[in-house]
Design a binder for these strands. Structure first.
Length: 283
DNA sequence: ACAGTGTAGGGAAAAGCCCGGG
DNA sequence: TCCCGGGCTTTTCCCTACACTG
């Protein structure tokens, strides 16, 4: 059994600058407040003590007053010093000691609550388990569910229930929730979750194209793209439409065909109002 | 309107490397 | 010294959205 930790208000809050807070509209502010309240209430329901060592004078006035109304904060001046968190406005979550191994029984409640917030602010949908449909907030307060979908994999994400055999895979996976992107390209201000992704991206700057087609000499940055290209020489069309019988060498073509069959036209021109099936036609 | 093809980013399994402990 | 296991990195893979072209 793991001992419950005391967390700081900062630990579950996202720190917006004055300017950013001013830029948020009313609905976003309300959403922020609601999520914060829910996060904290879940922590409290799990037996955590929330330490209110936070200066609300900056921008979280609505949060503070709402919290006071709900009498949810216990005022213990205790700060969990072994974990520190900070967040930049570029939606990058920097967690010093952020992830704890599931096999030790420790949960990442700290980061998960922040992540919930982050998902909300980034406009992403709250996470829902594909297997059972439980929402993130349900998962937060349902520890016994931990082993349900793991199939022997001992490192399970407490946000989406995905499980891994290696704790580093879990750590890497969690970046998809937190938005953490430690590998940055300075040329194009892009950042990636994986070092290899950055290196691959950098080839677009250097012009490196190591994968050459033996048939036509065309070169590609990615090996998969070469293999897919080679299918065009072989005439291989792996994706067949069961309605029209048409076959496609790429899944994207197949999906485009599918959209056409449904008659769906989700891409509407803002200038003339015309609706189109494919985004490329809108352009 | 639609098909064919290329570009490039995302997530993850597998393999490889390093290092400390027995 | 060797072996082993865990921590961590790198390689490689497949998938996907989107863009461009005819």
């Amino acid at each position: 059994m793991h001992s419950l930790k005391k967390v700081t208000f900062e630990g579950v809050a996202i720190d917006f600058t004055q300017e950013k807070w001013a830029m948020m509209d009313t609905s976003k502010r309300k959403l922020y407040r609601d999520v914060m309240l829910e996060n904290i209430s879940h922590l409290v329901s799990l037996g955590y003590q929330i330490s209110k060592s936070y200066n609300p004078g900056k921008q979280q006035g609505p949060v503070e007053s709402a919290l006071k109304k709900k009498h949810m904060i216990s005022m213990h001046p205790i700060i969990r010093k072994d974990v520190s968190t900070s967040m930049t406005m570029e939606n990058t979550l920097i967690l010093e000691d952020p992830f704890e191994c599931n096999d030790s029984g420790e949960d990442c409640t700290h980061s998960s609550t922040i992540t919930q917030c982050l998902l909300t602010h980034s406009g992403k949908k709250p996470y829902v388990s594909k297997q059972c449909g439980k929402s993130l907030l349900n998962l937060l307060s349902s520890k016994p569910r931990k082993q349900i979908h793991t199939k022997g994999k001992s490192y399970q994400c407490n946000l989406c229930e995905k499980a891994y055999t290696n704790c580093f895979h879990l750590r890497r996976h969690k970046m998809t929730h937190t938005g953490e992107r430690p590998y940055a390209c300075h040329l194009r201000r892009k950042a990636f979750t994986q070092c290899s992704h950055l290196r691959r991206h950098e080839k677009t700057h250097t012009g490196q194209r190591p994968y050459k087609c033996h048939q036509c000499g065309k070169a590609f940055i990615q090996s998969f793209n070469l293999r897919r290209h080679e299918r065009t020489h072989l005439g291989k069309k792996c994706y067949e439409c069961d309605k029209s019988g048409k076959a496609f060498s790429q899944s994207s073509g197949f999906r485009g065909n599918k959209i056409i069959h449904t008659g769906e036209k989700p891409h509407v021109c803002l200038l003339c109002g015309k609706a189109l099936s494919l985004s490329s036609d809108l352009r």
